[in-house]
Design a protein around this nucleic acid. Structure first.
Length: 484
RNA sequence: GGCGGGUUGGCGGAGAGGUUACGCAGCGGAUUGCAAAUCCGUGAAGACCGGUUCGAUUCCGGUACCCGCCUCCA
C-alpha cells in the first residue's frame, strides 16, 4: 500500500499518515459561510481536499473514507444580507429572507464547486440543524469549568485550556500584549471568545439555558465534527487564515468538551490565493467569484488545473498566463483523446491510474509533480509513432479521470457557447428593458412578468433596477430553454 | 509590536548535498497554399553575506525584500 505523507500544521512536519481506522478514514473541511457567492479563494481548499479524498479513496477503498464539509448558515453577515434585502423592499419576514438567502447560496456553491470537478462530500451538515448539539456542548463546557455565562453570553475560558495557542504557535500572554481587539466588559480574559450570544427580536435565535440566542462562530464545527466523525478523527483541513483563531478555538472547545478524544490528528492548511500579488479578500475588495470566471467562458476544469499547478502550501497567484497555460494543456489532452483513443467513452475505473502520479500525490499532495508526470505521458503518447489504445494511453485517460478531468478541451466549445449565450442574453435584456419602459408608462406589467417567468424557468437571474435590466446565467442555466 | 511562510532560468513551478526537473514563452528544424496547431531539437537558474563540507541552489547563521495571521475571511 502506498504510504501517504502529509504536512501537519500542528507539528510543522511532514509525517506518515496512519488512519485511526483504515476501514473509515475521516476528514473534515471547514466549509463556507453561506451569505454570498464563493470567491476564487474559497475554491482552493475544496479542490485541494478533493484531490486528497480521491487519493485516500484510491488507497483505502472508495467506501472507506468519510468526508464532511459543513455549511455555516448562522452568521451575522447572513443576517445583515437578509436585513439589507428587507430594507430594499423584499417581501417576507427576516427569518424567511435568511432561509431564502442560505438556500440560494448553497445552490450556487454546489453549482460552482461541481463545475470545478470537486466531488460532493459524504455529509454536508448545516449549522442550523445542529443547534441543540451546540447547546449541549456549550453546557458541557460550562459544567466542566471551561466556559462561563455573562449577560446572556457564554464565553470560553481560554485560561482553562493549557494548550491554547499551540496550533498557531502563540501564547495567550503574547497575544494579550499585542492585542488589537476591543475587550468586551463581560470577558474574564481578553482572549476569551464567544460560544453563545443573545439575539434580540430582530435576529434569528434559539431557546437555550442562557436565554434566546445564537451560537458564536467556531462552535458549529466542533459540534458537527463530533456528531459525524466522533471525538477523534484523522484530518481537519482549511485555509491557513483559519489557523487562528478559528481552528485554535475549535481545538480548545472540542478537547475540553471531550477530554478523552484527540479531536483531529492531522491539520492541513492551504496557503492563500492571491491576485496581483495580494491576498484576495473581501476587505481589500479585490475578489472575484468562481461564477465570474465561469461566466467569462473559463471552463471549470481550467480553473481546477490552474489550482493544481501550484502546491497547496504555497501562495498561488491567479493570472491570465496561467489560465492560458492550463487551457492549452486541456486542449492538448482533448486532441490526444480524439487521435489516440478509438472509444471516446471508455469505462474508466481507476485500475489503470499511473503509479508515479499516485506517488506524487502521496507525497503531501504534490500536484505540480503529478502534472509533470502527466505532461511526460502526454508527450510520449503524442509522438507520431505511438499507437492508439496502448496501455499508456488507457492509463493516461484513467489517470485524468481519476484526477477529476473528464471534459478536456472544453475551452473552444464553452467559449463559443458563452458568447452565444451572452449575445442572446444581452438581446433579451434589451428587449425586456424596452418592454419594461413601455410597461412603466402603461402600468401593464404582464408582458414583462411573463418574460421574467420564462427567463427564471431557464435558470437566468433577472435583476431589474433603475439602470435597466441585467440578465445573468444562474447555476441551473439552460440555454436551450431561453425564450426565442 | 508578536507569530508563521517565502525569495529558483524571460514567466510559472518541483525535487534532490554531487548526475537533464517539468511546463509555457524564445531560438533552430519538420510539416503546412498562408496562418494556426502539432512533432523533433536547443540555450538559460536558485535574493545577498558568511559558515559546515572534498563539494550547497539544497544544511546552519545573519542581512534585505515579499506575503500571511494577530479583526470578518479559505
Amino acid at each position: 500500500m502506498v504510504e501517504i505523507r502529509l504536512t501537519n500544521t500542528r507539528t510543522r512536519r511532514k509525517q506518515v499518515f496512519r488512519p485511526i481506522d483504515p476501514q473509515n478514514v475521516r476528514l473534515y473541511l471547514c466549509g463556507p459561510t453561506v451569505y454570498d457567492r464563493a470567491h476564487l479563494g474559497n475554491a482552493r481548499p475544496v479542490v485541494v481536499i478533493d484531490v486528497l479524498v480521491r487519493l485516500l479513496r484510491h488507497v483505502h477503498g472508495a467506501d472507506h473514507v468519510t468526508y464532511v464539509r459543513n455549511f455555516t448558515d448562522v452568521d451575522d453577515k447572513i443576517n445583515a444580507a437578509a436585513l439589507a434585502r428587507q430594507q430594499a423592499g423584499a417581501p417576507g419576514t427576516l427569518e424567511e429572507l435568511i432561509r431564502e438567502r442560505t438556500r440560494e447560496t448553497i445552490g450556487w456553491y454546489h453549482a460552482d464547486m461541481d463545475a470545478l470537478g470537486a466531488m460532493r462530500p459524504d455529509h454536508e451538515p448545516r449549522a442550523t440543524d445542529y443547534i441543540s448539539q451546540m447547546i449541549a456542548m456549550i453546557q458541557t463546557l460550562v459544567d466542566g469549568g471551561h466556559a462561563y455565562a455573562r449577560d446572556g453570553h457564554v464565553l470560553f475560558r481560554v485560561r482553562s485550556f493549557a494548550d491554547y495557542g499551540k496550533l498557531s504557535g502563540r501564547s495567550v500572554d503574547d497575544m494579550i500584549a499585542g492585542a488589537r481587539v476591543e475587550v468586551a466588559p463581560f470577558k474574564e480574559d481578553p482572549m476569551d471568545f464567544v460560544l453563545w450570544k443573545p439575539s434580540d427580536a430582530g435576529l434569528p435565535g434559539w431557546d437555550s439555558p442562557w436565554g434566546r440566542g445564537r451560537p458564536g462562530w467556531h462552535i458549529e464545527c466542533s459540534a458537527m465534527s463530533y456528531e459525524l466523525l466522533g471525538e477523534s478523527f484523522d484530518i481537519h483541513a482549511g485555509g491557513i487564515d483559519l489557523q487562528f483563531p478559528h481552528h485554535e478555538n475549535e481545538i480548545a472547545q472540542s478537547c475540553c468538551a471531550h477530554p478523552h478524544g484527540d479531536f483531529a490528528n492531522i491539520w492541513l492548511h492551504n496557503e492563500m490565493l492571491q491576485v496581483e500579488g495580494k491576498k484576495m479578500s473581501k476587505s481589500l475588495g479585490n475578489f472575484f467569484t468562481v461564477r465570474d470566471l465561469l461566466d467569462q467562458g473559463i471552463p471549470g476544469e481550467v480553473i481546477r488545473l490552474v489550482f493544481m499547478q501550484t502546491h497547496y502550501r504555497s501562495p498561488m497567484d491567479w493570472t491570465e498566463s496561467k489560465r492560458q497555460n492550463a487551457a492549452h494543456h486541456l486542449a492538448n489532452w482533448g486532441r490526444i483523446r480524439r487521435h489516440k483513443l478509438s472509444d471516446p467513452l471508455p469505462k474508466f475505473d481507476g485500475t489503470k491510474v499511473d503509479q508515479r502520479i499516485i506517488e506524487a500525490l502521496a507525497d503531501d499532495i504534490n500536484t505540480p509533480n503529478a502534472l509533470t508526470r502527466l505532461y511526460e505521458m502526454a508527450q510520449e503518447i503524442s509522438s507520431a509513432n505511438h499507437p492508439a489504445d496502448s496501455d499508456l494511453v488507457l492509463s493516461f485517460f484513467d489517470t485524468l479521470h481519476f484526477l477529476g478531468f473528464k471534459e478536456l478541451d472544453p475551452q473552444r466549445l464553452s467559449r463559443r457557447a458563452a458568447v452565444e449565450n451572452a449575445t442572446k442574453l444581452s438581446e433579451l435584456a434589451e428587449r425586456m428593458n424596452a418592454l419594461r419602459i413601455e410597461a412603466k408608462a402603461s402600468k401593464d406589467f404582464s408582458a414583462v412578468d411573463a418574460l421574467k417567468q420564462r427567463l427564471l424557468a431557464a435558470g437566468v437571474e433577472v435583476r431589474m433596477g433603475p439602470a435597466g435590466v441585467e440578465l445573468l446565467p444562474g447555476p441551473d442555466f439552460d440555454a436551450a430553454r431561453l425564450p426565442g
